[in-house]
Design a protein around this nucleic acid. Sequence first.
DNA 1: TATCGGATTATAGCCTCCTGAAAAACAATC
DNA 2: GATTGTTTTTCAGGAGGCTATAATCCGATA
Lengths: 302, 302
Amino acid sequence: MSTSELSSRISARLAQDIAVGEIACGAHLRAQEVADRYKVSRTPIREAFAALEEQGILRRFPNRGYFVADSIPQNIISEIKEAVDVARDEYQIFAEDWLTDQLPEIVTEQALRQRYNMTKARLSDLLARAAREGWAERKEGYGWRLLPVAKTAEAFDEIYRFRMAIEPAAMLEPSFKLNKEALASLRRTQERMLEGGVNSLPAEKLLDNGATFHEELARMSNNPFFLSALERVNRMRRLMEYRTKIDRQRLTEQCTDHLEIVSLLEQGEVLEASFFMRRHLSSALRRKARTAKFWSMTHQKD
Amino acid sequence: MSTSELSSRISARLAQDIAVGEIACGAHLRAQEVADRYKVSRTPIREAFAALEEQGILRRFPNRGYFVADSIPQNIISEIKEAVDVARDEYQIFAEDWLTDQLPEIVTEQALRQRYNMTKARLSDLLARAAREGWAERKEGYGWRLLPVAKTAEAFDEIYRFRMAIEPAAMLEPSFKLNKEALASLRRTQERMLEGGVNSLPAEKLLDNGATFHEELARMSNNPFFLSALERVNRMRRLMEYRTKIDRQRLTEQCTDHLEIVSLLEQGEVLEASFFMRRHLSSALRRKARTAKFWSMTHQKD
DNA sequence: TATCGGATTATAGCCTCCTGAAAAACAATC
DNA sequence: GATTGTTTTTCAGGAGGCTATAATCCGATA
């Protein structure tokens, strides 16, 4: 029964893949293959398999390994699909507390350990992550300083303006190279969203798809600094957007824009695509500005 | 005599400031003021003061505090100026080892602890820092993966191209606001360098001045994402440039460019300054490209 | 021969106690 | 009243043992 954190993470991901149909029913799951994919050893994989067998998602044949069950009850599938949203981890709680002024600007590790009831190691991971994302920094002596970077409503604008600087530029890098497959995959995702996903998928997934779209394009620049800068601001954006209600009308327009960009790129019109990207971000900024203003009036003090 | 790490860091910085003339002879050093500047309490400051008094750099008057000595022997001054270079900490050694292929791509914490003879906590700080800078990431199971981001000669180009995208854009941000004082201070630093500093200052200090120049301008954009992105790539650049010989001729041209940018800004010609910045970076890139090529032939294998 | 299954080895997180050092509170001096 | 000097409190890093769990090795099986 000992489901370690790692193996349960893995089993959750596998379950996802099976539920979505990424992994076909009846397929043989080779332990080593899966281990390679997740870049871990076979040990946690086997644990994950065992856990999934208990749920009836996999079947085991001694000395032959695990196979995806031939049919999986609908109720289990929907159960799996919903499970994603629950993953509100300590980090998000911490971030949320900071964004909502529940924490002082200067905090000691002790105070945080007490508040969140965490061990030293876990806490220092937490802080390292926040530091990595750019909103916490260790003071020289004791304590940490939490930065207001992502707190203000203006941060929305700032992120969009930053993206306006890097994303179109990334597409014009001399090392930029179209990745047809990635592009096709992006197109599929956006089309699926337009064909109803916008209204059915969970908010988190929708935001994720949007971020992935932009990041994949940045990746094609083949300049890792553009990509990692974008990933960075996107992570921070997510912290904030997590709290705002999603505007599904806006998402539809976004997807249309995204598809337009894909089309331009497919035709090799990189320069046009870059321009269009800039406009796309700029219109998002204008819209955001209004949302942010509203948000600031309703959620911020003074 | 217990000189903690923090207080000795502080005393080193103070000594620097005094040696360079940033802090005048005979000046009264108020403990609280210095503490505020370094964002620590008075305790480590007082220790630093005591250490500096022992070296004869400060004088103590009971109940009145510490004062900079009226005259500091030349030999002590040059000693201080050289001391900077020695501060090659574990992090730099670690980075160096990775850049020179002394470390495998996948490493366990144990292996690193043994190699560098570090405690758990220090090592995890080290790795957190590398992760923060973007060239290490924790694997899902045990171990860390070191990323080749900053290893290749191309990374030089990539960083400069990234900077070409963000730095001129930062100056055109609607929130951009000139900071006259900061500008004046930058001008002074650059002028000092042209007036001989280029040949006398330690390499590290020179690189530092350059980075600071650009970062201060990015700060004036009042968009923290531009600034932090620049700081990020600068840190990485430093890891690499640390190993290459410094070209003092090139530095002179750089300083001239920097002064030109300051002049444009002082006249309110922000647009021109932005253009000039782009050209400035682009010429550095062209030059770098040659250096990097040379560097790759001489330092890299295959 | 590729894959699985079980046994062994190694890793890293957690816990507790301990201590040097930083922060904070308080007292003294000009 | 601002600043220094002293004391007390709090903090976080270090060491070492313990344990869950990940990696690895090796034999078994189809």
